[in-house]
Design a protein around this nucleic acid. Sequence first.
DNA 1: ATGGTCGGCAACCGA
Length: 271
Amino acid sequence: MRITVTTWNINSVRLRINLVAKFIKAVRPDLLCLQETKCPDDRFPLKRLKRLGYENVALNGQKGYHGVVVLSRLPFESTAIRAYCGKSDCRHVSIVLGERAGFKDPITLHNFYVPAGGDIPDPAVNAKFAHKLAFLDEMHASAALRPAPSERAIIVGDLNVAPLECDVWSHRQLLTVVSHTPIECEKLLGIQKAGNWIDAVRTFVPEPTKLYTWWSYRSLDWIASDRGRRLDHIWVAPALADRLSTVKVLKDSRGWTRPSDHVPVTATLEL
DNA sequence: ATGGTCGGCAACCGA
């Protein structure tokens, strides 16, 4: 059995529902994890997505900001939502695939939208950056994000950190820019290390090859300047490491009409 | 060196 998992910060699911449909028709992932849906659950375009084949939906949305969802062609055993930093922000949803989906051994999938962290990389003067660091600390401390050796688990999402030098267009110029400051990179890599997570994307595109998943809207010519960052991630637990067969970053979608500033990242697992 | 653009939702906030 083969499953495909996509993560995509859609930056408003209602505005870009036609781009979601276009992506689905081209890629048809089994699991589509979106972030920044910017949509309350009762306004989510459920019918359209069900018609597109996604009958199983784990929603965690709110009005105006944030919001995550897991859309699935396969039925879930369970879903869960975790609140981080004592806030009601919709930044996490997880699902478990099991016997109903044809898996004897369950697979847990976490979908995260880590706070972006504002502009000033100093937690003493920027509460948004302090929130981001606290959020990463809470992820580090979470037992749910430290899978046992036999446990089949996946983390995806817009983690809003580009941890490696080759995850940004200029390591030197971004050292003081939120998303690539040393403290964030250390914290993100610390979470990865504590859970023995494998960075699925870098399994196929190893360092030092440059690879990005986000290009700012504030660029006259995003493709010519190519000042990107790799903010969107797929990590797998050790039990799934040798099951990865492909990873694709759909850079073309950044050039679609009225695009998201993030592009979809898709991993394939042979189970 | 700075400012540049989006989306939500109705004045700015967040990215």
